[in-house]
């Protein structure tokens, strides 16, 4: 069941068309990554969904919010969350909870639960002004989910964190996906691959690619053989590339990368040839092109 339908969303700031017509759907309990380079329009898209920026045209239709306030259904964490510095973490969560419609005691219980879940329980009575960046990020996630929204939107939740913080926040998001749909923006494909089922790839305000990660892999990934020789890598590689239909070969630092159609066939062919001529092989690796390379190609186009 879809949580929200986005229909032909457009937005321009002065002369710059930031979003050029987005169409997509988000389903319940799915984790979707909004991927794209800086300036691709990720934050603007999330802000429009959160109601903070008004789209020029198009529609955002939340299921079950035809009459009621759609803000009940969403939780949002901005890229640089700012809080009331003079409040303590616990006070802020209880405040946010009550504003989201929880009763005083519900807000209290939920705040306690989330402080534990996000791992900032020991700092709950400290002023937010004294929190570190990572703690603010966690507090931000906690306030976004305090009213159990159907859709949680997180704008670059891990980009500003150190590796440990990043890991913990990703694990937290993995837990969250059992309760709500998550839409989060990132410019790092790795983060998306780790916890997401689907991605939306945004480039210059347009959706250039979307779908499940598995689907994208079969669509875009190619088998790859990396070879390195003790010497004359380029010369040997060129000779090998004449052997069979290799779709492309390029020299990548110390080794040569071949994109091949039939991996089994290519492996046998290469290895036999290398043995026969007794070439000084130091590396032979079979892998697949990374999705990252695929996206790099899209962006550079």
């Amino acid at each position: 069941m879809p949580v929200v339908n986005i229909i032909n969303l457009k937005k321009r700031f002065q002369d710059l068309e930031v979003i050029k017509g987005l169409d997509f759907q988000l389903s319940e309990r799915k984790c979707i990554a909004l991927l794209g380079a800086n300036g691709a329009g990720k934050s603007t898209t999330l802000k429009m969904l959160a109601g903070l920026v008004k789209p020029d045209s198009g529609a955002i239709v939340f299921e079950g919010a035809e009459k009621a306030d759609f803000r009940r259904l969403i939780g949002y964490l901005p890229q640089f969350p700012v809080f009331y510095e003079w409040m303590t973490g616990n006070e802020f969560l209880e405040y946010a909870g009550q504003l989201a419609g929880l009763s005083k005691s519900e807000a209290k219980d939920r705040a306690k639960e989330l402080l534990e879940l996000t791992g900032i329980a020991e700092a709950k009575n400290r002023r937010i002004g004294k929190y570190s960046g990572g703690m603010k990020q966690r507090l931000g996630i906690a306030q976004a989910i305090i009213h159990r929204p159907k859709l949680v939107m997180l704008d670059e939740p891990v980009s500003a964190l150190d590796p440990f913080g990043r890991r913990e926040v990703l694990e937290l998001m993995d837990k969250l996906k059992k309760e709500s749909a998550i839409l989060f923006s990132t410019h790092i494909l790795n983060d998306a691959e780790e916890i997401c089922d689907e991605i939306l790839f945004l480039h210059n305000g347009e959706l250039v690619e979307s779908g499940t990660l598995a689907g994208l892999r079969t669509k875009h990934q190619q088998a790859k053989i990396d070879l390195a020789f003790k010497e004359n890598t380029l010369q040997y590689a060129e000779e090998l590339s004449l052997l069979q239909p290799v779709s492309s070969m390029k020299l990548d630092g110390e080794y040569a990368s071949f994109l091949v159609e039939d991996i089994e066939y290519a492996r046998e062919l290469f290895l036999t040839e290398i043995m026969k001529r007794n070439l000084p092989l130091v590396k032979f690796e079979i892998s697949r092109t990374r999705l990252e390379d695929v996206f790099m190609k899209v962006v550079q186009k």
């Binding site: 959160a50 903070l52 969403i74 901005p78 700012v82 946010a96 504003l99 419609g101």
Partner: peptide, 13 residues
């Protein structure tokens, strides 16, 4: 200006 209003007003306030 600080941005905290954005955080508060995405709640059903």
């Amino acid at each position: 200006k600080s941005g905290v209003a954005g955080l508060i007003l995405v709640k059903p306030v």
